[in-house]
């Protein structure tokens, strides 16, 4: 990697971010993530308050607080999470942080798949890519686009975290403000890491197609297929024999879905395995997309 390569990659990334700001794409992303974050936090806190009200009406005069020390919340988490150590970790987090992590790991990838899919394909379609490729190679160009989108994603994820924080502060009256902030700061990079293979998949779609619409279809459609594959791989009746089981396991491993579990609990081997898998898949998808872009006409 030469200094010129790094310089070009940085220039393309900076221009990508600036273009996103100018085209209002960044604004749309921030609003979407802020909106989703606010809605999620509002829904969660309202649900908590409803449970509290119903619980206190069953036992009149007794106030039941849904916080991490509440038996109701403890039972809920232990029922969902079978690993006692993992359950204890989640119980150490303010509930809104747990919900933020769960919702972001589950839903943010779909926004990424939708919003980042057109980044290269639209330039191929308009032939605007030609102005850049006269001056730099296809690899620094594609890497710069990916880096720019990753920075935009980081900003959007931070916006979602801020929205969660602000809404929970407002509705929960500032309860555990420090703990919530620390928890979100801990999950923010993990959410980014989890979204990286999805971003790489969107870039793969963008490098494999020559129109923004086709790219979105491949990005989202392909992700739906991968999600189905990942879900099917958990069904034991499909895994007849060691070969079949191995193939399903491999298929599951190669999809970006199914790696959120380890990232939710940043301790031990499953975390490091899933973190490494997310990075590996990002490289794999990006590499496959670049292999197509390198050979194709633009």
């Amino acid at each position: 990697m030469t200094p010129s390569f790094l310089r070009d990659t940085t220039l393309v990334a900076r221009f990508e971010i600036a273009e996103a700001v100018r085209s209002k794409l960044l604004l749309v992303m921030l609003l979407l993530f802020l909106g989703a974050g606010s809605l999620g936090a509002w829904g969660f806190t309202k649900a908590v308050q409803r449970i509290e009200q119903e619980a206190s009406s069953v036992v009149p005069g007794v106030s039941v607080k849904i916080d991490r020390s509440s038996p109701l919340y403890r039972n809920l988490i232990q029922r969902f999470v079978h690993d006692p150590a993992k359950a204890e970790y989640f119980l150490s987090l303010p509930p809104i942080v747990f919900f933020y992590a769960w919702a972001s790991l589950g839903f943010m990838p779909w926004l990424v798949l939708f919003l980042s899919a057109e980044t290269i394909a639209s330039e191929v379609s308009s032939r605007g890519i030609r102005y850049s490729l006269l001056r730099t190679g296809r690899l620094p160009y594609a890497l710069g686009k990916m880096a720019g989108q990753a920075v935009i994603l980081a900003g959007a994820a931070a916006a979602a975290a801020l929205a969660y924080y602000a809404v929970s502060w407002k509705l929960l009256g500032g309860v555990e403000a420090g703990g919530i902030a620390r928890g979100m700061l801990c999950y923010w990079p993990l959410i980014l890491l989890h979204n990286l293979p999805f971003l790489a998949w969107a870039l793969f779609a963008s490098m494999a197609t020559a129109s923004a619409n086709l790219s979105r279809i491949l990005s989202l459609g392909g992700a739906v297929v991968l999600a189905i594959l990942s879900a099917l791989s958990g069904w034991s009746f499909l895994q007849r024999g060691p070969v079949s089981a191995g193939l399903w396991k491999l298929a599951s491993f190669l999809t970006p879905f199914g790696h959120a579990g380890g990232l939710e609990y940043p301790r031990g081997t499953p975390f490091w395995t899933d973190a490494a898998t997310c990075l590996g898949l990002s490289l794999l998808y990006f590499g496959a997309g670049y292999a197509l872009l390198r050979r194709r006409d633009v």
Binding site: T2, S4, F5, E19, R22, S23, S126, R127, G128, R130, Y131, L133, L134, R135, T136, G137
Partner: peptide, 18 residues
Amino acid sequence: PARLKGRVGASPQDAALG
């Protein structure tokens, strides 16, 4: 493009700018 950086200028037909 790495070897020809800055040595070739071109105006492609129908290529759109942002």
